[in-house]
Amino acid sequence: MVVRDTPWPEGTPSWVDVMVPDTQRAAAFYSGLFGWQPEDQGEEYGHYQIASLEGKSVAAIGPKMPGMEGVPSTWTTYLSVADVDKTAAKITEAGGQLMMPPGDVGDAGRMAVAADPAGAVFGLWQAREMIGIQLAGIPGTLVWNECMTRDFDGAKAFYAEVFGYRVQDMSGEGFRYVTLNLNDRPIGGLGAIPEQMPAETPSHWAVYFGVSDTDAAAARIQELGGSVLSDPQDTPYGRMAQVTDDQGVPFSVISVSGE
């Protein structure tokens, strides 16, 4: 379990949110699955809902912006930075692009949304009053973030140049994967999209939420109207499954302890 009340280190995934057509439906789904308690931030913030668990912020749900109705909904990973504007400049210099330029979010912080050269979208978060995630690593909270890419070598070079990550190779037969490390500590992963995946699968950042029982969580997801994309399977890091919510947004669940 990780409890935090100060800004996350530079380059660390510090927030996740999902933009969906129906926020109330999403709030009901994730509350039913994880026990989240979403709180509407009001009209000033576009009725963005910050979800908490045990009184600490863990994620958010927001409405799709005008003009984005046809764009598939996804979970977005935000990386912590000390200066959004400087990091945004580094992203463009390294061949990425800005999808949303740096801007203030009231007194909460400053943010931007970018894409790496292969098209994987991620956010930047410069904390002020809101640090982002306050609770992680237990059931109902964020456990892992990874970028799955169609340009494995290019992505490694891009993220190392922009965020200073050092990589540790975890590749094996039939797959290419590295952890992204800061101070010799893994903060996320980077993998090559497997050849068997459909050609239209784009480079993307993926999120993993913890559960106490993956099989029970998969069953609950289906009860709530979601889908199981890959049946629960054991891995060296916990039993996991790839799933979607009841609006088709993909994510993964993985078993973790409650401590």
Rank of each mutant, 00 (worst) to 15 (best):
R110F: 01
G119H: 15
G70P: 00
I138E: 14
V81I: 12
R110I: 02
A127F: 07
A82L: 10
Q126R: 05
A136P: 03
V84A: 14
G109W: 02
K90E: 14
D116P: 08
T77E: 05
M99S: 11
A112L: 11
D83P: 03
A88Q: 01
M68Q: 12
E69L: 07
P66M: 02
A115Y: 09
S80V: 05
T87K: 14
R110S: 00
W125S: 03
T87W: 04
V113R: 09
L124V: 09
L79P: 11
D85R: 11
K86A: 15
L98Y: 06
E129R: 15
G123H: 03
D83Q: 02
D107F: 01
I138K: 15
M100H: 00
W75M: 07
A108W: 04
V84K: 08
E69Q: 12
M100F: 07
D104S: 12
G96A: 14
I133T: 15
A118T: 15
E93H: 04
G119F: 15
G109A: 14
Q126G: 09
T77C: 02
Q97P: 02
P117T: 02
T87Y: 09
G67K: 00
L135F: 14
G132S: 13
A136Y: 00
F122R: 06
E129W: 03
A127W: 08
P101A: 11
V71W: 00
R110T: 08
D116Q: 00
P66E: 07
G95C: 05
P117C: 07
W125M: 07
G96P: 02
W75L: 09
A108E: 07
T74A: 11
M68F: 13
D116N: 06
A112Y: 08
E129C: 04
R128Y: 01
G67V: 00
Y78C: 09
P139N: 10
I138R: 15
V113Q: 12
D104G: 11
V113L: 13
V71I: 11
T77G: 02
M68N: 10
V81S: 06
A94W: 12
Q126C: 05
K90V: 06
A136M: 06
E69G: 03
A82N: 11
Q97H: 10
